[in-house]
């Protein structure tokens, strides 16, 4: 007999590598449900429906898809005075990152979305005085992609040795210590440092103004 699943505390970071899950997250309403609301705390179907201006039934179907994808969990149930049984849902992680390689290798829309996003990021660096010509956009994309992939790989491998104590930490403290450790783990990784150096060299060579802090 299966017992009700134990609800694990929110992870600080989750790297999504399954292309089916990435596809679920790229649907606009589901993306809003997760990124705008449920990463910040738990909400009911009715609250989400009111916030998004959608029918509760529609939201319920989206929540089901997100639950199936492992992006959302049912946190608690509350019985109201009117007899409604409200279920509170929240995201499984405070921050989701999409696996770049998996997106690039995925079929159709996801790969196009990933390529367009990188192109857009590279060209948008011009607002900070980083003038990257179109002819070098491909190289910039590759450097940045490798850096982000390594960062995701290192960050998602950090082990929590005392999970029970970690889970008991207040959310803000858990977030802070997680970030301290992620930063430390990245600095400790020679491959990450090498990729970061290459990316920064590239940026330095295209700097036309601003950034006077060095």
């Amino acid at each position: 007999m299966t017992e009700p699943a134990r609800v694990e505390p929110m992870k600080d970071l989750e790297v999504v590598t399954d292309s089916n899950v990435i596809r679920v997250l790229l649907e606009p309403v589901r993306s809003d449900i997760v990124f705008k609301y449920l990463v910040n705390g738990s909400m009911t179907v009715k609250q989400l429906a009111d916030a998004l201006g959608k029918n509760p039934g529609t939201i319920l179907h989206h929540i089901e898809a997100l639950k199936k994808a492992g992006l959302v969990v049912q946190e608690r149930t509350q019985l109201t005075s009117t007899g409604i049984v409200q279920r509170y849902y929240r995201a499984t992680a405070r921050e989701f990152r999409l696996g770049i390689s998996e997106m690039i290798q995925a079929n159709g829309g996801i790969a196009r979305f990933a390529r367009d996003r990188f192109r857009s990021m590279i060209s948008s660096l011009s607002v900070y005085g980083m003038d990257i010509p179109e002819s070098e956009a491909e190289q910039a994309t590759l450097l940045l992609r490798n850096l982000i992939e390594r960062e995701n790989a290192v960050s998602s491998k950090i082990q929590v040795l005392d999970a029970e104590s970690y889970n008991r930490l207040p959310p803000s403290v858990r977030g802070d210590v997680s970030r301290i450790m992620r930063r430390f783990a990245l600095e400790e990784d020679p491959q990450y440092r090498d990729l970061r150096e290459k990316w920064h060299d590239f940026l330095r060579s295209h700097r036309t103004g601003g950034m006077k802090n060095e």
Binding site: P4, R6, E75, R168, L169, P170, P171, G175, D176, R179
Partner: peptide, 24 residues
């Protein structure tokens, strides 16, 4: 009946829950 009574034990933030350490 399917309410998750066995939710993992957590401690709520005592203060406003603001983070001190920035993003990586």
């Amino acid at each position: 009946l399917t309410d998750n009574a066995s939710a993992a034990e957590t401690t709520e933030d005592e203060g406003p829950g603001v983070r001190i350490v920035g993003g990586v």
